[in-house]
Simulated assay, not measured.
Amino acid sequence: MNLKERLQTHLSQIARERDPYMATAGHFFVQEYIRQQLAQWGSVEIHTFLVGRKTCQNLILNLPSQAEGKKTDLSPILIGAHYDAVPGTPGADDNATGVAVLLELSRKFAAAPARYPLRLVAFDMEEYGLLGSAAYAANLRQQQQPLRLMMSLEMLGYRDATPGSQSYPPPLERFYPNQGDFIALIGNLRTVRDLISISRSIRKVGIASQWLPVPNRGLIVTQTRRSDHAPFWDAGYPAIMVTDTAFLRNPHYHKPSDAIATLDLDFLTGVCEGLEAGIRRL
């Protein structure tokens, strides 16, 4: 199977009702699917956290760097994607696409390691207020674990080249294109060099890419905080969200119509290839 077919296979397994409260069977199925996929490349660590009385799980795979065995102390790059979805939607773009790319990046970097160790994390409970990533970021902060970079994969598969298809929180519309045919990279100020470098790698594979550095933990334009990178910004880590801009472009956001048929799989495949190249260049 080529990359596009593998991404499509992941999407067909993950895009289903999987709200942690209202669709527990689907949620458990997807959790198990991710665990089995990651387990091909190493032992999957489970980070549990409580929400009320409910035990929730982040699934983690650590992959070694190229230099494993030599004495190097490189901080890991953490790549995360949330696997829960809001009630009443199959959540194909939000966020089966992010998880599918996470799984393919695990395959690629297991076969040929990056310069940095990688930590791939499937977060739970994002839709309930970034609870999985907040619990995990707090845990890392408490253990004083440094990160080279945190990257949140948040909706990667919707493209619309029609003029006027892309909206923005003001005043960003003055600086960015009005058609939704690019992948966006949004990072805190510490990530500017990474934003430029990864954006360049994505463009090299033929996918349009725009980048936006935000000051002050994104509090000025709160729409920039709506994913699992935000708790890492708050904890002082360099972090980036990779996104098709969600509700600013995709009319199916949080609706029953967020189905695989609405996605652009060539776009998703290009984003995955560009991210792999970009991570290898860091």
Rank of each mutant, 00 (worst) to 15 (best):
P87Q: 11
P90E: 02
K71A: 11
P64L: 01
G52K: 13
N58S: 08
E127D: 09
L103N: 06
Q40E: 15
M125H: 13
L120C: 04
L78A: 04
V101P: 08
T48V: 15
V121Q: 05
Y116D: 01
F49T: 07
F123M: 10
Y21T: 13
L130F: 13
E126K: 08
W41I: 08
V44Y: 13
H27T: 01
T97K: 09
D94H: 02
M22V: 12
Q36N: 14
L102V: 07
E68K: 03
L105P: 00
A135K: 00
D84C: 04
S106H: 07
S133N: 05
N62L: 08
W41D: 12
M125G: 07
T24Q: 12
D19E: 07
F109N: 01
A85D: 09
T72F: 09
L74Y: 10
I60K: 05
A134I: 07
R53T: 15
F28Y: 12
T55C: 14
A23R: 08
A111W: 05
F28H: 15
A100C: 06
G88R: 02
H27N: 08
G98S: 09
H82R: 12
L38R: 10
L63V: 01
G80M: 00
A23W: 05
A111S: 11
L78P: 04
T72C: 10
Q66M: 01
V121T: 07
I34K: 02
Y116F: 13
L61C: 05
Q37Y: 11
S65D: 00
S106M: 10
F109H: 02
I46T: 15
K71I: 11
A110N: 00
G42M: 09
G132D: 05
L59W: 06
A39H: 11
A81Q: 04
K70T: 15
Q66F: 00
A112E: 14
Y33C: 07
Q36P: 04
V30R: 03
P20G: 00
D19Y: 05
K108G: 12
Y33E: 06
R115A: 15
D93N: 13
N62T: 10
F49K: 07
L118G: 00
T72W: 08
V99G: 06
A25I: 12
A112Y: 10
Y128D: 13
A100H: 06
G129A: 06
D84G: 03
Y83R: 04
S65R: 00
P87A: 13
H47L: 12
K54C: 11
Q57R: 15
T55L: 15
M22T: 14
A96Y: 02
T48P: 14
G80C: 00
I60Y: 02
R107L: 00
A81R: 03
E127S: 05
W41L: 11
D73H: 14
L61P: 06
A67R: 10
V51P: 11
L105G: 01
Y33H: 09
G91F: 02
P76Q: 03
G132Q: 04
D84E: 04
V86Y: 08
T97H: 09
G42F: 09
A112V: 13
